[in-house]
Amino acid sequence: MELTKNARAILALVMLNGIKPVIRSPLWLIVMLAYPLILIFFIQIFAEYAVSEALVGGLISLVVMSGVAIQADIVWYKVELKFQDMAVASPISPTVYMIGMAISELVYSSPAIVLFLVLMALRGVLDLSSIPMLTLSMLLCWLSALSLGFYLSTRISDIRHIWALEGLISIALSMLPPIYYPISLLPEWAQMVSMLVPTTHAALLAKEAVGIVSLTEYQRLMSLTILLLWTFILLVLARRKSVWREP
């Protein structure tokens, strides 16, 4: 019974924060798509051979953007609309609220994700065997970005700070690290630094899944462990430190 109620609550959040706004303002879909697609456009012009790698990077970038975007929506609902206050003073639990908001963010990035998968298939870098690891790396990456976004949204109450932070986080997680380009292009010290970033490992695992890079057993295990560790830490941070009822 409780499960059914929670499912309805999640559906309602997906409708009100995802599907309905997207239908009425599809510009957001283009915004979501434009960012990674522009990079791929330039890569196509200057280094056509790297496009397949950039498409995988674009996928990782999309899930990061989708996860991080939750912070702006949550702060908007909390501070500007006061909708979150209405949610707190109602039977909905913070976990259900977070899940509903998180899935609603995917509505914005889903068409772009599908387009990137189609482009990858057309270039012959996507087959059935690559899907499990590609999905896992994207999922872990999304959960990490989502948890970080949710945690920050409960700590920052100025929407302008959130917008600035959202841009910075997207750059730090999906532009600077070797997501769109091979890690080998970086100097050794930068490679070491990039190994601290979860998206580097998500990209490595995804690229290996589609056969663009090859990892040793040790490298694969290390990337998976680091990515899982980041996801776990950020999920715990979001669960433990986030504020629902104010102290």
Binding site: R8, A9, L11, A12, L13, M15, L16, M86, A87, P91
Partner: peptide
Amino acid sequence: EHVKYYLMMRG
């Protein structure tokens, strides 16, 4: 939609 989705959120 406002009223309907808010009611669904409440179960």
